[in-house]
Design a protein around this nucleic acid. Structure first.
Lengths: 143, 143
DNA sequence: AATAAAATGCAATAATGTTGCATTTGCGGT
DNA sequence: ACCGCAAATGCAACATTATTGCATTTTATT
């Protein structure tokens, strides 16, 4: 099963129609290990309306196909959820690393994050740990 | 020493001039336990230019007087750093709780967050744990 | 009181995100 | 293979949040 077939299956599974723009978004996001900003997506996706892109992204987010994180500029970035995220309940307990230099957001899935006890009254849905600093690339450049 | 004197001292300590708009910002932020969004500040601060507000906030952020977090809408929210934050190095290792209903951001300072080991190459400056869910107020309303 | 540096206000503009509506398209049923 | 409907798209207009340049005012210091 190639990538494209996987994407089509993914759409079908979530009752989303198989459209060109959606396949492109999936293909773009799956190609990157860092979260991609809306503007970045917009600039590379080609002939797709800005509004359509917004709507695709929020549809995907609702279905649990992707998740959204904000970078240090406050702009939305998107990344595919790890494989089993859609089946169970959207668990984003991974670490987001925000690079202060290039502003990229890295999703580091396989670190275990200790859940923390909150004061009474708060009802927690998801946890996520985020760190800021320099990513390997920018760290090298500065050295 | 009353509040206002504290604020004036704080400004002086950071080589910032004592101005009316700055004192108002400090006073507004110190009165709240939740982070305040730029729009919220703008609407209550009175006769201060929008641009001035932005500049005050970023000046305060640079000096380590306040810190900035993004809420679930991606808009910037600001909160005073806890007392000793300015002296040492800006340590925001506290938990931010984002309410999915009212979109407020709560800063919960006194929970201990376990730092996590990152893959080699990343140079971490700050950690912060964030959780999403319902805050006590909204939790009550829904029940 | 005079001065220099800093802070403010205003105008213009940029970037990001949203809404309403007409048109097109995917896809299930026949 | 065709029909029809719901869903998705594209377009236009608009809303919100943030930034930049420059003239004016204010603070703090001498």
């Amino acid at each position: 099963m190639n990538n494209n077939q996987q994407f089509e299956y993914l759409l079908k599974r979530h009752q989303l129609k198989r459209t060109e723009p959606r396949l492109r978004v999936l293909s773009l996001l799956s190609a990157k290990s860092v979260a991609t900003s809306q503007p970045d997506l917009e600039s590379v996706i080609g002939d797709v309306d800005r509004v359509t892109l917004y709507r695709i992204l929020s549809a995907f987010e609702e279905k649990g196909i992707i998740h959204k994180v904000f970078d240090l500029n406050g702009t939305a970035n998107y990344a595919l959820c790890s494989s089993d995220c859609a089946e169970h309940d959207h668990h984003d307990e991974h670490l987001h690393f925000n690079c202060t230099s290039c502003k990229k957001v890295y999703c580091l899935d396989d670190l275990d994050v200790q859940p923390v006890k909150l004061p009474a009254g708060f009802k927690v849905e998801t946890f996520s740990l985020s760190a800021t600093g320099l990513c390997p690339k920018c760290n090298n450049k500065e050295a």
